[in-house]
Simulated scan of single mutants.
Amino acid sequence: MNGRYPFLVSIPHGGTAVPPELRGLVNLTHKEIVFNSDPYTRRLYGFDDAVEAMVDFDVSRVFVDTNRAPYDYPPRTQDGVVKAVTQDGTPVFRKGQTPGRELIGTLLQNYYHPFHKRLAGALDTRPIEIAFDCHSMLPKSPPVRMDAGRPRPLFCLSNRGDRNGRPTRAGGLVTCPPGWLQALARSFQAEFEGEGQVAMNDPFRGGFISVAHYRRRRIPWVQVEINRGLYETEDREAGEARLTELRGRIFAAITGFWDEVSG
């Protein structure tokens, strides 16, 4: 034993970089890019030497979203692997400058596929027993979603199932055993008792990363979403302390779950 937990931690949306291929085309300020990414997820889920593998991504999800299918892009979809609009409906690119198929192909080749190869490589070469795809979510559903304005839970844990982690139909796919997801939810609820709800598959059911890599290797995957209201504040010093505290509590919840199901 090397002292590490047998976890793969994926942090696909923590980056804020603009690919050089897109310079001069972008309609957003740096502040808007950060807001529409998953700020601070590298801090919150950066468990480093305590887990078998971590894979993160430098590019903002606005420009290359590794949690979307590689064939979902404008004009077919506005919220695909390359975004046409932000969460509040702001155009990502200057008028007439939305990338076409050739440029999107270059972005996929240079950034998207290498990220997924890193995930696959970790799953193929490391003793991984469960993978966590780690994200943050706005306190309320944004304007572009059908449930706009709806308050969100403290955490959302997803395996593509129903609100109890079970398949939505007979024989339906779930990326993690329902009993495991329920145990993980209990562990988070105990760690954050009295602070808010820990939900399963609501409002998110899990995205492309967890489904694609579960299908390939059948190693369980859970998508984890933390409510940004837990840590976003105007007080920089207080925010830094809160991030450090939350990182420890999230790790305690995940490892507590693992000690229960693997014992």
Score class of each variant (00 low, 15 high):
residue 223 Q to T: 15
residue 196 G to Q: 01
residue 30 H to L: 11
residue 56 D to K: 01
residue 44 L to W: 00
residue 73 Y to S: 03
residue 32 E to K: 05
residue 162 D to T: 06
residue 165 G to H: 11
residue 216 R to A: 15
residue 242 R to D: 01
residue 212 A to E: 13
residue 177 P to W: 01
residue 126 R to V: 03
residue 243 L to P: 07
residue 239 G to P: 12
residue 116 H to D: 11
residue 154 L to S: 08
residue 51 V to Y: 00
residue 251 F to T: 08
residue 136 S to D: 12
residue 229 G to S: 06
residue 221 W to F: 15
residue 3 G to S: 04
residue 39 P to Y: 01
residue 115 F to H: 15
residue 61 R to T: 10
residue 250 I to R: 02
residue 190 A to R: 14
residue 148 A to M: 01
residue 94 R to T: 10
residue 244 T to S: 12
residue 13 H to L: 05
residue 28 L to M: 08
residue 41 T to F: 03
residue 246 L to Y: 03
residue 250 I to L: 08
residue 150 R to Y: 02
residue 22 L to T: 09
residue 173 L to G: 05
residue 192 F to Q: 06
residue 141 S to F: 00
residue 226 I to E: 10
residue 204 F to D: 09
residue 110 N to P: 00
residue 225 E to D: 10
residue 200 M to Q: 14
residue 92 V to H: 09
residue 214 Y to H: 14
residue 99 P to S: 02
residue 45 Y to Q: 05
residue 115 F to Q: 13
residue 156 C to H: 04
residue 47 F to T: 05
residue 158 S to K: 06
residue 146 M to I: 14
residue 68 R to D: 11
residue 249 R to W: 04
residue 187 S to E: 10
residue 24 G to L: 09
residue 198 V to R: 05
residue 237 E to A: 15
residue 181 L to T: 13
residue 81 V to R: 04
residue 232 E to A: 04
residue 257 F to Y: 14
residue 190 A to W: 00
residue 226 I to T: 14
residue 15 G to D: 07
residue 88 D to G: 09
residue 28 L to W: 05
residue 158 S to A: 15
residue 135 H to F: 10
residue 188 F to H: 07
residue 23 R to D: 11
residue 117 K to C: 09
residue 195 E to P: 04
residue 231 Y to H: 12
residue 136 S to T: 15
residue 47 F to M: 03
residue 110 N to H: 13
residue 182 Q to A: 14
residue 226 I to F: 01
residue 237 E to Y: 03
residue 228 R to D: 09
residue 40 Y to C: 15
residue 229 G to H: 02
residue 134 C to Q: 03
residue 63 F to E: 06
residue 129 E to P: 02
residue 17 A to E: 15
residue 135 H to Q: 14
residue 256 G to N: 01
residue 197 Q to R: 12
residue 119 L to T: 09
residue 109 Q to M: 08
residue 179 G to N: 10
residue 16 T to D: 09
residue 216 R to L: 10
residue 253 A to E: 04
residue 185 A to D: 02
residue 238 A to Q: 13
residue 197 Q to F: 05
residue 90 T to K: 15
residue 88 D to M: 04
residue 57 F to V: 10
residue 141 S to V: 07
residue 145 R to N: 14
residue 206 G to I: 06
residue 160 R to I: 11
residue 109 Q to W: 02
residue 262 S to W: 08
residue 90 T to R: 12
residue 62 V to H: 01
residue 38 D to W: 05
residue 226 I to A: 10
residue 190 A to K: 13
residue 84 A to T: 07
residue 212 A to P: 00
residue 64 V to P: 12
residue 230 L to R: 15
residue 210 S to Y: 00
residue 104 I to E: 11
residue 169 R to H: 13
residue 85 V to G: 00
residue 68 R to N: 07
residue 238 A to N: 02
residue 58 D to A: 13
residue 204 F to K: 05
residue 229 G to F: 04
residue 171 G to E: 06
residue 11 I to D: 05
residue 33 I to T: 12
residue 141 S to M: 13
residue 143 P to G: 03
residue 43 R to T: 13
residue 52 E to I: 06
residue 49 D to Q: 12
residue 226 I to P: 08
residue 190 A to V: 01
residue 222 V to L: 04
residue 27 N to D: 14
residue 111 Y to W: 14
residue 159 N to T: 11
residue 125 T to D: 12
residue 238 A to H: 06
residue 115 F to M: 08
residue 203 P to C: 02
residue 116 H to F: 07
residue 219 I to R: 08
residue 250 I to G: 01
residue 222 V to N: 09
residue 118 R to C: 04
residue 259 D to C: 03
residue 80 G to D: 11
residue 79 D to S: 07
residue 53 A to V: 06
residue 99 P to A: 03
residue 45 Y to H: 13
